[in-house]
Structures are given as structure tokens and as C-alpha cells.
């Protein structure tokens, strides 16, 4: 009887160690799949891109990114993206506040359509904006082929970011704190600045960083409505596309590497904001 129990324990132990070994094999397999797939789809193409940009040497690289047209495109890209990010910070926060604290008929519908710019193909977004704000505008506003069109298109595609990062924070924020501030004589503006804003600031900042990343790389919504005029409405991604079309891949790759670096920096910033705020929550 005793030996039978011992056998059972031994079998169970062996099964467990077999299971552990199989676990480790499974871990290695899944990690292998993830690494291989990411390498093939993301890392290898980006390596080829960086390689191409270095083909002409560091001199060629600088010449490519400091050509007047490339510089003009990069300046417009960064300038318009910053303007759009700031507008998003204000209008996105207001929209999030209205969606959380206000109550009106059709609020659920309004809440749902916030994500529409994400779901709508960017080329359709551009065509759509042109229908209302182009030369055939029924309301007589024509911004087509101007820098205003660049800002408009970027506002469209970045609409959801700040709203969606601020909304959950605002929802969890205690209304009683604001009520207490108000009962102690603080005006709405003071209560907002002292109580609400510090709490939602990380949300606003990560939304702004996401919007910036999207705006800097945006392409589809801009090609139709901006006319892609060099020195005037041509942003960096459109410039890169033009260089590819004319067979000048080293120049295209050089500017693309600049955009790649900007994307990395913005992702890093978002990571840092997230890290700091979660630590803040725990402490």
C-alpha cells in the first residue's frame, strides 16, 4: 500500500517536471514566433531603410535632408502638427469634459462618432473635407491647396486621441472634490485649474503625444485636399512619396529616417508619461 502511494507521488512529480519542461519549450516557441515575425515584418524593412539612407555617406544624408524642399516640408510638418496638437489639447479636453460631466440627448451617439476618424480610411477623410471646404463648397469656404487645409485634415485624423485619453481619467475623478472646492468659494475656473487639470494633465499629454505622432506621419488625408504644392502645402510624407515616384530613393530614405526618429522619440515620451503616472498612482 505504502509503495503504491510512493509510486503515485513519483509519477505525479515526473508529470510535473515534464509539464515544466513542456512549459519552458512552449515559452521558447512563443518567444521565437514573436521575435521572428517582428523581425521579418518590422525590423528587417526598417533596417533596409536606414541602410539605404546611409548609402550616400553622412555627407549625402545631410545633403538630402537639408535640401530646401525637404527642409520646407519638414518645417510645415512640424509646425502644422504642433498647432494641431495644441488645438487638440484644448478642444479634445473640452469634448471629453462635455462627454463625461454634461448630459444631453444623443450623448451616446456623439460619444460613438468620436472614433469615426479612426475607422474611416484617410483617403476618404480627405475627399470628405474637400467636399465641404473645397472649390465646390456649398458654404463658400474654400481652403483647398492652402496650409489651412493641412491643419484641417490633421485635426480630422487626430480628433479621437486627446478625447479618449482624458475621458477615462475624468470619469474616475471624484466630483466631490470639485464640489468641496466650490463650496469653499472657488470659482469654476479656479476649481478646474487647481483640481481637475492636475489630475487629467498626464492624459492630455499622452493624447497630445499620440496626436503629434499621427500628425507628423499623416499622408492619406492630405494628398487630395492639399494639392501637394512644394514649399507651400507639401508635408514630409508627401515629399517622401514624391521622391520614391521619381526614383530618388536615397533622398526619400534620408527624410524617412528623420520621421522614424521623431516617431521613436514620441513613443518614448508616451512611455515615460505612462510610467510616471502609474508610479504616482501607486504612491
Amino acid at each position: 500500500m505504502g509503495s503504491l502511494a510512493n509510486d503515485a507521488i513519483a509519477i505525479a512529480r515526473r508529470a510535473r517536471s515534464l509539464g515544466a519542461r513542456r512549459d519552458r519549450a512552449g515559452a521558447a516557441l512563443s518567444l521565437g514566433i514573436v521575435t521572428t515575425f517582428l523581425t521579418l515584418i518590422v525590423v528587417l524593412p526598417l533596417a533596409a531603410l536606414v541602410w539605404e539612407s546611409k548609402k550616400a555617406g553622412s555627407h549625402g544624408f545631410w545633403a538630402a535632408i537639408s535640401s530646401p524642399e525637404a527642409v520646407a516640408a519638414l518645417k510645415l510638418t512640424l509646425g502644422a502638427s504642433l498647432v494641431v496638437a495644441l488645438l487638440n489639447a484644448v478642444l479634445g479636453t473640452i469634448t471629453a469634459w462635455v462627454l463625461v460631466r454634461d448630459d444631453f440627448r444623443g450623448k451616446a451617439l456623439v460619444n460613438a462618432i468620436i472614433d469615426l476618424p479612426f475607422a474611416l480610411p484617410t483617403i476618404v477623410a480627405g475627399l470628405t473635407l474637400l467636399a465641404l471646404y473645397g472649390s465646390r463648397s456649398p458654404i463658400g469656404i474654400n481652403v483647398a491647396y492652402t496650409r489651412g487645409a493641412v491643419v484641417l485634415a490633421l485635426l480630422f485624423v487626430t480628433l479621437p486621441f486627446v478625447v479618449r485619453t482624458v475621458q477615462p481619467v475624468l470619469r474616475e475623478l471624484d466630483v466631490e472634490m470639485e464640489a468641496a472646492a466650490a463650496s469653499l468659494g472657488a470659482s469654476d475656473a479656479v476649481a478646474f485649474r487647481r483640481i481637475v487639470l492636475p489630475n487629467i494633465l498626464p492624459g492630455i499629454l499622452s493624447g497630445v503625444a499620440l496626436a503629434l505622432a499621427k500628425a507628423v506621419g499623416e499622408f492619406g488625408s492630405l494628398v487630395i485636399i492639399t494639392g501637394n504644392l512644394p514649399y507651400k502645402t507639401e508635408v514630409s510624407s508627401v515629399y517622401i512619396f514624391g521622391r520614391i515616384e521619381s526614383g530618388d530613393t536615397p533622398a526619400a530614405a534620408a527624410v524617412a529616417v528623420v520621421l522614424l526618429v521623431i516617431s521613436f522619440v514620441l513613443l518614448l515620451t508616451i512611455g515615460v508619461i505612462r510610467h510616471v503616472t502609474t508610479r504616482h498612482d501607486r504612491g
Binding site: A48, G217, F219, S237, I240, I244, A252, A256, L259, S263
Partner: peptide, 12 residues
């Protein structure tokens, strides 16, 4: 965070 054109160029 990456521009779709940059993605296209990298694959190209």
C-alpha cells in the same frame, strides 16, 4: 506612430 509612407518605403 510611424508614417504609412515610411512603412511603404521600408518594404519597397
Amino acid at each position: 506612430a510611424l508614417s504609412p509612407v515610411v512603412v511603404g518605403l521600408a518594404l519597397f
